[in-house]
Computed example of a mutant assay.
Amino acid sequence: MPPFALLGLSLPDLTLLALAAALLGLSKTAVPGAATITVAVFAAVLPARASTGVLLVLLILGDLFAVWTYRAHADWPVLRRLVPAVLAGVALGTLFLAVAGDTTVRRVIGVILLLLVAVTFVRRARARPAARERPGGAGRFETSSYGALAGFTTMVANAGGPVMSLYLLAAGFSMSRFLGTTAWFFFAVNVAKAPFSVSLGLISLESLQLDLLLAPAIVIGALAGRPLARRIDQRLFDRLVLALTVLSAAYLLMA
């Protein structure tokens, strides 16, 4: 019997998960924000709670590629200022996962995805003015707010990317600082989340078996990311990401 059948997955299920994993790898090295589709697909194919544990290991693998690619561009003072708020958000997300049922988690993931789409539109509308008005970086209140929201969303739905994107753009980051800081931030946060996920039973031997099957897709997506990004229409791709994310979130809310 094929390994994926032993995990209760059909071949179409595994194929869909592999495509979503490849997109996750792509998002880590080329197209930030595309991972929201991966979150929705995993929560639709797998039980919503279990999907967060499977995704976390794959995210860490993708983070390793991102850190290697942009390792020299992180803004460490900004990362240090974010730590307390992010940890508070992760702790709140852990408490939520401990008491919430699978249906509730699925609905919350759907709502979070819709909110993050709205955040993305706000980011686009305010990106240029923010970069001009706030070249020195965001204030303490904004840092705490964004950090806590990023910690909560990444713990509950592995979907903190758009929140961090809005924060870093509001702080007036250049592209290289943006990519480097994001890479190190999510690598550190995802590694820190692992013990919480293990304690909640979200990471198990079975979830690790599925991660092993999907790991090659992450590698392929991450390696293909940078050369592919230079050849596609970024604006069109972003619109497709937003549209598919809205559809995925709607599915999760109605399922």
Rank of each mutant, 00 (worst) to 15 (best):
residue 133 E to N: 13
residue 159 A to S: 15
residue 146 Y to D: 00
residue 101 G to D: 09
residue 153 T to M: 14
residue 33 G to T: 12
residue 152 F to T: 07
residue 63 D to T: 11
residue 156 V to C: 02
residue 144 S to D: 11
residue 38 T to V: 04
residue 81 R to F: 07
residue 105 V to I: 13
residue 158 N to E: 08
residue 121 F to K: 02
residue 55 L to D: 02
residue 144 S to A: 15
residue 128 R to Y: 02
residue 28 K to I: 13
residue 168 L to W: 10
residue 120 T to E: 02
residue 122 V to E: 08
residue 91 A to W: 13
residue 45 V to C: 07
residue 92 L to A: 15
residue 79 L to W: 05
residue 37 I to D: 00
residue 67 V to Y: 01
residue 93 G to F: 01
residue 79 L to K: 10
residue 29 T to H: 05
residue 123 R to V: 12
residue 162 P to S: 10
residue 40 A to W: 04
residue 71 R to S: 10
residue 66 A to K: 07
residue 165 S to P: 06
residue 48 A to W: 00
residue 132 R to D: 10
residue 84 P to A: 12
residue 109 I to G: 00
residue 111 V to K: 01
residue 152 F to R: 01
residue 97 L to R: 05
residue 27 S to P: 07
residue 162 P to A: 06
residue 39 V to G: 00
residue 35 A to M: 10
residue 80 R to I: 14
residue 34 A to Q: 10
residue 125 A to K: 12
residue 124 R to C: 03
residue 69 T to H: 13
residue 126 R to M: 11
residue 38 T to W: 02
residue 65 F to T: 10
residue 131 A to I: 03
residue 144 S to R: 13
residue 155 M to Y: 06
residue 120 T to Y: 04
residue 145 S to E: 03
residue 134 R to E: 11
residue 103 T to R: 12
residue 71 R to A: 11
residue 150 A to Y: 01
residue 124 R to F: 04
residue 163 V to W: 06
residue 114 L to N: 09
residue 45 V to H: 05
residue 37 I to Y: 00
residue 100 A to S: 14
residue 70 Y to V: 07
residue 93 G to L: 01
residue 99 V to L: 10
residue 64 L to K: 04
residue 145 S to F: 15
residue 27 S to L: 05
residue 132 R to M: 13
residue 108 V to D: 00
residue 147 G to Y: 05
residue 40 A to K: 00
residue 133 E to L: 15
residue 155 M to G: 10
residue 53 G to V: 08
residue 73 H to D: 15
residue 169 L to E: 09
residue 153 T to H: 04
residue 34 A to E: 03
residue 106 R to G: 03
residue 71 R to M: 07
residue 119 V to A: 12
residue 170 A to H: 11
residue 76 W to Q: 12
residue 101 G to R: 05
residue 109 I to L: 04
residue 167 Y to Q: 01
residue 85 A to E: 04
residue 136 G to M: 02
residue 83 V to S: 01
